[in-house]
Each structure stands twice: as C-alpha cells, then as structure tokens.
Amino acid sequence: MSALSEQRVAVGLRIGGRHVEVPAAKIARSIAVNVGSMMAAAAILGFIWAMATATVGDDLPGPVVTMKTFLSLISDPFYDRGPNDKGIGLQLAASLWRVFRGFAVGTVVAIPLGVLLGANAVTRRILDPIVQVLRPVSPLAWFPIGLVTLKSAPDAAVFVVFITSLWPTVINTAFGVSSIPQSHRNVARVFEFSPATYVRRVMLPHSLPHILVGLRLSLGIAWVVIVAAEMLSGGTGIGFYVWDAWNALDLQRVISAILLIGIVGLLLDRMVSIIARRFEYPEVP
C-alpha cells in the first residue's frame, strides 16, 4: 500500500455523476477495510453457529463440515443428472427466472397502479381499499388461486411472486407521485407544460427514486417468497432443493442452500441500488 501511494497512482471513478480521480492507495485501503469487516462478520457468524451446534442444536452440522459441503456444491454448480439431481447453480437459476418473470409482470402492473393511486383523489378512494385488503394476505395463500387458474405448479409459484411483489412498488410509487411539491406543479402550470411533458419531466423524475425504493423492496420480497412457493410447487428451484435436502435429512445441504439464498438476495439488492444511483440528483436546498 505504501508503495502504491508513493507512486501516486490514481483511478478515475464516477461518483454521483462526476468524474473523480481517486488515489489507488485510498482504494486499496477501502478494499482492505471492506474485506476485513466481512471476515470479521463471517468469524462472528461462524462462532455463534459453532456455539449453537455445541450446546442446544447438537443435531445441526457445524460450520466446518458444512463449509466442505458448501464448497463441493459450488465447485460443480451446473451439473444435470435428470429431473431429481441438478446442480445448485441450476436450481438457483430456475428460481431467479421465476422471480424475474413474476417481478417483471408485477412491475408492469404496480407502477401504473401506483400512479393512479397517487395522482388522483377519486382513483385513490376507489383503489386504496383494494390494496389495503389484498396487501396483508400471506403469499402462500395465493398459491391455490395460481394453481387453479394457471394449471401448473411452477407457474403458480410465479403467480405468487407476482402478487406479493406488487405492493411495495404500488405504495412507493403512489407516495412518489402524491409528494410532488407544489412549487414543481406551479412551474408546470405557469410554463403551460402539456400533460405528456408534465409526466415525463416532472412526475416521473420526481417519483423515480421512490419507485426504485419500491422495486428494491419488491424484489427482496419476491426472493423471500419464491423459496417458500417452490417448497409447495416442487420440481425445480432453490426452495424445492431445500425441501428435497431436508427430506434426505441432509442438513449440510440445507444450510449451504440457506447461505446461497442469502448471498443471492444480497446481490439482487445491490444490483437495484446500483441502478437506483444512476437516477439520483443533487438535492436543492
């Protein structure tokens, strides 16, 4: 690190839409800090886990044996030996594909619904009770509805993802649209913006950060829900994988899958927040 800083190496970065030269030494330090804190977190988790297996949960596999299974699972993630024996990468991919479909349809429905809820008092009065009644329903309660309409268990899982990932986007979009400051509305009126200009230049840019918060929450929920839905639907997917491993009493695989589910969830969340950063703008005092 000291050698780097002496050479005054700098790396160009884009931060908040601006090009910034950052010294390599600073980057190296920030990487070291990040890696260090991640290792500390892993050590704490491993310690709690080891303590748990040593005391109350003596049927649980400990961290060391589980890690062996984990590594062997991710070393060959994409093998396919028939319908009942697929690599964990394929299972994750199947789940992600379902989440993506359900989430995509959910987004297409949720954003216009949110706009209707937020933009107009009449539509809000009509739609709000519907949203409030459907929102607290447990995701799996929708499974039979999906099954009976789509006649397919995997598609029913997609349906469950769709319906439960709607609400955060609907509610955040509605909030974004309804919170447009009076000053921006006045600007649009005084300069006689057409409705299309208003939507494109005022309503959407103001709501977009809120919409993206909603999408981030929705995607998080979708990922939580798919695991449960696949336990019911069976066939493929990481949820099915967990259930299958449990039925084989292979808890090392169960815990490995839990870790992977967590890591994928984290990556999904980061992905949306990186996208969201592109639409940020500096606040005006």
């Binding site: 000053s183 921006h184 006045n186 600007v187 005084v190 300069f191 006689e192 913006f193 057409s194 200009t197 230049r201 005022v202 840019p205 103001h206 703008y281 500096p282 606040e283 005006v284």
Partner: peptide, 24 residues
C-alpha cells in the same frame, strides 16, 4: 413568473430547465 425559491426542476440540467420551458 420567477418563483421565490427558483422553482427549477432538480433532476434537469440548467440547459434542460430552460429548454423544457421554451419548448412548452
């Protein structure tokens, strides 16, 4: 009108703030 608190749209560049108004 020139508004008390400028009333510029914070997500548009200076250029676009003017252009949008001229365009409308």
């Amino acid at each position: 009108m020139v508004f008390q608190h400028h009333g510029l749209l914070p997500w548009l560049s200076v250029y676009d703030n003017i252009y949008v108004a001229v365009d409308a």
